[in-house]
């Protein structure tokens, strides 16, 4: 762009749906859906403390939600479709705003901005990319291919009553320190994402107009981030240290 401002006043129709603020609405609403999902997922993971059978049973119940109104697994697939669409929207908006932001300041300052703003923005963006990479690994490992990295567990040992058990696969996987480490790194990224994201989403949606609601949004963000990190970190650590056994 020419360095001298030659921009003119926009003429013609403008619409709210083509603004950066609308893009943030999309990020905030899809983000809110992820928060709900992540909390449910965390609850499900804690079932491992009741043993692999109870864990598998919970997974089975998910497939029976709204049966017989919906077919077996129907709700699960609808919800998965919604999550995938949301993820595409969330990531698309994130990358679009990221590249816009880069374009908005091509020439950096000589003195690096030490303000919290730059660090938070980096944390959201690179943390988001980390989450995306981890998500692919995670889905391949436990959902799509169900890969077992633990040589101590043969295919037979991963079966419960003759059926392959996801609960046992989880236990086998987290007996490996490096698998636990990958998950802990992803959790740090998730925790930081929520630490800023939950507050940011509330502000994006216009819910933080009073001092009380702002304080509430910040507290909720810190609580959600803390609960999610703890709740997800406990099962892998309990397995690694032999508190939960197959």
């Amino acid at each position: 762009m020419d360095p001298v401002a030659t921009t003119t006043l926009l003429t013609g129709e403008t619409t709210a749906r083509r603004t950066t603020v609308f893009m943030k609405f999309l990020m905030a609403t899809t983000g809110a859906l992820f928060v709900f999902y992540v909390l449910m997922h965390m609850y499900g993971n804690l079932k491992i403390f009741a043993g692999p059978a109870a864990f598998d049973e919970y997974a089975e119940h998910l497939r029976e939600i709204l049966v017989p109104i919906l077919p077996y697994s129907g709700f699960l697939w609808l919800f998965r479709a919604l999550l995938v669409v949301s993820l595409v929207v969330h990531a698309y908006a994130a990358f679009t705003l990221w590249s816009r932001a880069n374009g908005a300041r091509p020439q950096r300052y000589a003195v690096k901005n030490a303000a919290k703003g730059a660090a938070r923005t980096k944390m959201m963006r690179w943390g988001g990319v980390t989450l995306l990479a981890w998500l692919i690994f995670h889905l391949v490992q436990f959902t799509i291919a169900k890969v077992n990295f633990n040589g101590a567990f043969s295919a037979d040992k991963l079966k419960l009553d003759g059926h392959p058990s996801t609960g046992l696969l989880v236990i086998a996987s987290f007996q490996l320190w490096w698998v636990v480490l990958i998950y802990l790194i992803a959790l740090v990224a998730l925790g930081m994402h929520l630490f800023h994201g939950v507050w940011s989403g509330a502000q994006t949606l216009g819910w933080t107009n009073s001092a009380t609601s702002r304080r509430l949004a910040h507290t909720t963000a810190h609580l959600v981030a803390g609960i999610v990190v703890l709740g997800f970190a406990i099962p892998p650590l309990a397995i690694l240290f032999g508190i939960v056994k197959g």
């Binding site: 762009m1 921009t7 006043l9 926009l10 403008t14 619409t15 709210a16 083509r18 603004t19 950066t20 603020v21 893009m23 943030k24 705003l97 816009r100 932001a101 374009g103 908005a104 300041r105 901005n113 303000a115 919290k116 703003g117 730059a118 938070r120 923005t121 959201m124 800023h196 507050w199 940011s200 502000q203 994006t204």
Partner: peptide
């Protein structure tokens, strides 16, 4: 007003907001 102003803002090449508060601090 709000739609026209934000549209012009985006058109000028300003970035989107990430709610960091760096602006209000200065």
């Amino acid at each position: 007003r709000v739609v026209k102003m934000v549209s012009q803002h985006d058109h000028e090449g300003f970035g989107g907001c990430t709610n960091t508060g760096a602006c209000a601090d200065v």
